[in-house]
C-alpha cells in the first residue's frame, strides 16, 4: 500500500527576530490509506504544527517530508488533502452550500456538479435543511459538521483535523465524530485528528503523542 505521507525527522522553527520559536522539535511518521490516527498532547506541544506540515500548509525547517501517493506539495489541496480547523473556518459571507462547494470550484469542477455534490454531502451529515443559512446562523457543532462536509466533498485521500471539537461540548463532539466515522466507513481516506479528548482519542486505531515538540510514540 503506497504511503500517503512520509515524514523523517521533520522540525519547524519560526523566525521571531532575536528569539526563534521552536514549534516542532522532531517528528518521524507515516500516514497510510485508511489510517485512523489520533494525535494527543498538551497545548503548545506542536500538534497543530505537525498537522500543518503533514498537509503542506507549512514547510519544515529541518528533515524531509514527501507525499508518495499524493504528488507534489502544490497538488495536495483542495482535492487530495482536506483540513478542518479548531476555529470557525467557514467563510462568513458564503452560505452553507456555497462553503461546501467552494473547494470543488477551486478545483475547476463544473458549477452544477459542485452544487450537486455539496447538497449530497450536506444530506449525508443531516444538514441539507441548513444549505442556505449563513455560518453566523449555525451553532458551533453545526458549523464544524459543515466544515467536515466541505472536506468530504472533494473525496480527499487524507483528512487532517486540528482539534475540531475543541470548542464543542462533549455530547456534540461525540455526535460529530459519529457522523464523521459513519461517513468515512469503508473508505480508504486517512484521518489524522489532533485532540485533547482522551475519549475521542480512544476511538481511533492509532494514537500519536506529542511532548515538548517531539512526536514520542506511535501506539496502535
Amino acid at each position: 500500500m503506497t504511503t500517503l505521507v512520509d515524514a523523517r525527522d521533520i522540525g519547524c522553527t519560526y523566525d521571531n527576530g532575536s528569539s526563534p520559536i521552536v514549534a516542532l522539535e522532531s517528528a518521524t511518521c507515516q500516514v497510510k490509506p485508511g489510517d485512523r490516527i489520533a494525535l494527543v498532547g498538551q497545548s503548545g506541544s506542536g500538534k497543530s504544527t505537525l498537522l500543518q506540515l503533514l498537509g503542506g500548509l507549512e514547510t519544515p525547517t529541518k528533515g524531509e517530508i514527501a507525499w508518495p501517493a499524493l504528488g507534489d506539495r502544490d497538488d495536495l489541496r483542495p482535492m487530495k488533502v482536506g483540513f478542518v480547523f479548531q476555529m470557525q473556518s467557514l467563510l462568513a459571507p458564503l452560505s452553507v452550500v456555497e462553503n461546501v462547494e467552494l473547494p470543488l470550484l477551486l478545483a475547476q469542477t463544473n458549477r452544477g456538479q459542485a452544487r450537486k455534490t455539496a447538497y449530497e454531502e450536506l444530506e449525508r451529515i443531516g444538514l441539507r435543511h441548513l444549505a442556505d443559512k449563513l455560518p453566523e446562523e449555525l451553532s458551533g457543532g453545526q458549523a464544524q459538521r459543515v466544515a467536515f462536509a466541505r472536506v468530504m466533498a472533494t473525496r480527499p485521500q487524507l483528512i487532517l483535523a486540528d482539534e475540531p471539537t475543541g470548542q464543542l461540548d462533549h455530547p456534540t463532539a461525540h455526535h460529530l465524530f459519529e457522523v464523521l466515522f459513519e461517513a468515512l466507513a469503508g473508505s480508504d481516506t486517512a484521518l489524522v485528528v489532533a485532540t485533547h479528548d482522551r475519549k475521542v482519542a480512544e476511538r481511533f486505531d492509532t494514537l500519536w503523542t506529542m511532548k515538548q515538540g517531539r512526536l514520542e510514540a506511535n501506539a496502535s
Binding site: 500548509l57 489541496r77 483540513f83 480547523f85 473556518s89 467563510l91 462568513a92 473547494p103 477551486l106
Partner: peptide, 14 residues
C-alpha cells in the same frame, strides 16, 4: 477569510 481560502487550496488567482 483569505487565509481559509488559501488553506482550502485557493491559488493566487483565486
Amino acid at each position: 477569510t483569505f487565509a481559509i481560502l488559501s488553506a482550502l487550496g485557493g491559488r493566487k488567482k483565486h
